[in-house]
Simulated assay, not measured.
Amino acid sequence: MERAPQQTGRSTPGTPDAPGASASFVRFVIFGGGVGLASSAAVALLAAVLPFTLANALVTAVSTILATELHARFTFASASGPGPGSGPGPTGRGPLRCGLRHHLQSAATAAAAFAVTTLATLALHAFASAPGLAVEQTVYLSASALAGIGRFLALRLYVFATTRRQPAPVTLDLRAAPARRELLTTAS
């Protein structure tokens, strides 16, 4: 029995041409953290000329698009490089290389992470009327770390996973097997 090699032309996290989980996670932290730090500075600068809510909304939208592009190109990309049919499936059209599906799904994971940190902070304030800054930051950063891990897993296993692992089809190669009569004559 011989297994036929599985040829999909695309990579899946865990395949030889896709970065491993550790490498992807380090890249995720570097690119996501870098965009987060830049966003923090951008909100502060924009809030000087725009209402804070509007500045935050603009920076959040731009930073989510930027982070999604960086994750598609570098965090979850295959060694053969992003492009149609390789890596996470960027379209290669225009300045944005991810499709709308990738951006919407990534935005959903960012919204879920925002909800986790918001709920954690609200829960803290429900239990403690005036928590200190250190406690509040500890709760926020802990929730942010958990949400980040969840977001990494969702992006790696769902958003940027272009193929699902399926068992390779089993083929039976009868040419290589000796005829039954040959087996009987060699055994005697």
Rank of each mutant, 00 (worst) to 15 (best):
S80V: 07
A128F: 15
L104C: 12
H103N: 10
E2K: 08
V49C: 12
G132Y: 01
V49H: 14
L174A: 12
A130Y: 14
G89S: 07
S24Q: 03
G36K: 01
L172M: 12
L45Y: 02
A161V: 05
T53S: 12
F76A: 05
L54Q: 15
S39N: 07
V35I: 15
S188K: 04
H125E: 14
A57S: 11
I65V: 15
T64S: 13
P88C: 09
I149C: 04
R93Y: 03
F160N: 00
F76K: 01
E69P: 06
E182F: 10
G148W: 01
T60Q: 10
V139F: 10
T109I: 04
A55D: 03
A67P: 02
G148P: 04
N56A: 15
R156P: 00
T162C: 05
E2I: 04
T53C: 14
V43Y: 06
G94D: 09
A168Y: 01
A108C: 11
P19G: 03
F76N: 00
T185E: 12
R27P: 09
A107V: 01
L66F: 13
L153E: 05
R73W: 13
A154H: 02
L124G: 08
L37E: 07
Y140H: 13
A145L: 15
A161Y: 00
V43P: 02
